[in-house]
Amino acid sequence: MLGTHEATTEADRINGRRIIGWSLAWAATVLVATAVLASDTISGPAAWLVAAVCAAIGVGGLGAYRRYVAEADELTRQIQLEGIAFGFGLGVLVTLSWSLFEFAGAPVLNASTAGTVMIFGYIGGVLLATHRYR
């Protein structure tokens, strides 16, 4: 999905691996930070610092993704664009539509659900676009 298959250029593969590295680092820090903050072992400025470190690593991942798209082969860029569009559209559609279902008694979604829907929408969009251009 991020330039790791055989059909992409070497730059795509290197940048794809960079994103995976940042993503794994971000996921690991979120897990550790969640465990630490939820356990109430730290508070005040230290808690803010832990949250800020997570966000900073996330920004690093965002920068790596921006670089990947900027340097990508043009078809890869097109596929990523379609994936982003699908993910964003699905996220907006699901979250706004769900607010109506909440009036009808559906369970209330938290903010992270929108992000999760966007991520899965993005993955689905990239897979669909990759298949379309195969």
């Binding site: 059909a7 250029t9 082969d73 043009e74 078809l75 890869t76 379309r132 251009y133 195969r134």
Partner: peptide, 15 residues
């Protein structure tokens, strides 16, 4: 300086 997938997609008229 593009991917093989790009060449293939152009050849078959998909891109």
């Amino acid at each position: 300086e593009v991917s093989r997938q790009t060449v293939n997609a152009i050849e078959v008229g998909k891109y």
